[in-house]
Amino acid sequence: MYKLNGALGSPYSMKMRALMRYRRIQHCWVHGTDSREALTKVKVPVIPVMEYPDGSFHNDSTPLIYDLEERHAERSVIPPDPARAFIAHLVEDFADEWVTKAMFGYRWLEDVDQIQMSRWLAFDALKGGGLASSQGFAEQFRARQVGRMPIVGCTRENFPLIEASTRALLDALEAHVVNSHCLFGTRPSIAEFGIYGQLSQLGVDPTAEAMMRKDYPYSFRWLLHIDDMSGIDGEWDAEDAPYAPIIIAWLKQVGEIYIPFLLANSAAIEAGVNTFSITAMGLPYSQGVFKYQVKCLADLRARYAALDFAARAKVEPLLAESGCLAALG
Rank of each mutant, 00 (worst) to 15 (best):
L4W: 13
A7E: 05
L8F: 15
G9L: 03
P11T: 00
P11R: 01
M20A: 07
M20N: 12
R21W: 14
Q26R: 14
Q26M: 03
C28R: 14
C28W: 04
D34V: 00
S35F: 04
P45W: 05
P45N: 06
P48W: 02
V49S: 02
E51H: 11
Y52G: 01
D54V: 13
S56T: 15
N59F: 06
D60K: 15
S76P: 10
P79R: 00
A83T: 15
F86V: 07
F86N: 09
V91A: 12
D93E: 15
A95M: 00
D96H: 11
D96A: 14
D96W: 09
T100S: 11
T100M: 08
M103N: 02
Y106G: 12
W108F: 05
W120S: 09
L121W: 00
F123W: 10
L126Y: 13
G130R: 06
S133L: 14
A138V: 08
Q140D: 11
A143L: 04
I151R: 12
V152K: 09
V152W: 08
R156V: 13
R156Q: 15
T166W: 12
S180R: 15
L183N: 02
F184H: 07
E192V: 11
F193V: 03
G194A: 08
G194N: 03
I195Y: 04
L199S: 09
L202Y: 07
D205S: 11
T207C: 04
P217R: 08
R221V: 02
I226N: 12
I226S: 12
D228Q: 14
I232K: 12
D233E: 14
E235V: 11
E235I: 05
D237S: 06
Y243G: 00
A244R: 13
P245D: 12
L251E: 00
K252V: 02
V254P: 08
I257M: 10
I257S: 07
N265W: 01
G272R: 05
V273Y: 02
A280G: 08
G282F: 03
L283H: 04
P284I: 09
Y304F: 12
A311M: 01
L325D: 07
L325S: 02
L325E: 01
A327R: 00
